[in-house]
Amino acid sequence: TLFEALYDYEARTEDDLSFHKGEKFQILNSSEGDWWEVRSLTTGETGYIPSPYLAPV
């Protein structure tokens, strides 16, 4: 399942991933609570992002 960003987000740590509203992601790991490890389909980068900022496509 692909997810889309509902809002912009600016990374706060080196493990976070900055992204823009509308960017699409592949979920790599969603078992860590509200922070999911994802791969951006736009940039190819991986990192953690807050799951409340995402919605299924």
Rank of each mutant, 00 (worst) to 15 (best):
T1D: 12
T1S: 11
T1Y: 12
L2W: 09
L2G: 01
F3E: 01
F3W: 15
F3P: 00
E4L: 09
E4P: 00
A5E: 00
A5F: 01
A5P: 00
L6E: 03
L6F: 04
L6Q: 07
L6P: 03
Y7W: 13
Y7H: 09
Y7P: 00
Y7Q: 09
Y7F: 13
Y7S: 09
D8M: 03
D8K: 04
D8G: 06
D8P: 06
Y9Q: 03
Y9I: 03
E10S: 11
A11M: 04
A11Q: 06
R12I: 11
R12A: 12
R12E: 12
T13N: 14
T13E: 09
T13V: 08
T13M: 11
T13D: 10
E14R: 10
E14N: 12
D15G: 15
D15N: 14
D15R: 15
D15F: 15
D15V: 14
D16Y: 13
D16R: 14
D16F: 14
D16H: 15
L17F: 14
S18R: 04
S18K: 05
S18E: 03
F19H: 01
F19T: 04
F19A: 10
F19I: 08
H20W: 09
H20K: 15
K21G: 02
G22H: 06
G22S: 04
E23S: 05
K24L: 15
K24E: 04
K24W: 12
F25R: 00
Q26M: 14
Q26S: 08
I27L: 13
I27F: 10
I27Q: 03
L28A: 01
L28S: 01
N29K: 08
N29D: 11
N29M: 07
S31G: 11
S31H: 09
S31T: 12
S31I: 10
E32Y: 12
E32S: 13
E32F: 13
E32P: 09
G33H: 11
G33F: 09
G33L: 10
D34N: 09
D34K: 09
D34H: 11
W35T: 08
W35K: 10
W35M: 13
W36P: 00
W36H: 01
W36A: 01
W36T: 03
W36V: 07
E37G: 04
E37W: 15
V38L: 01
V38T: 01
S40D: 02
S40E: 02
S40F: 04
S40G: 02
S40T: 03
S40Q: 07
S40H: 07
L41R: 01
L41T: 07
T43D: 02
T43V: 01
T43R: 04
G44W: 06
G44T: 02
E45K: 15
E45L: 14
T46F: 06
T46K: 09
T46P: 01
T46Y: 07
T46W: 07
G47C: 04
G47T: 03
G47A: 04
Y48V: 08
Y48N: 06
Y48E: 01
I49C: 06
I49G: 04
P50H: 14
S51R: 12
P52S: 15
Y53A: 14
Y53T: 04
Y53I: 06
L54Q: 03
L54K: 04
L54S: 04
A55R: 12
A55N: 07
A55L: 08
P56S: 07
P56F: 07
P56D: 05
P56V: 08
V57M: 09
V57H: 07
V57L: 11
V57F: 08
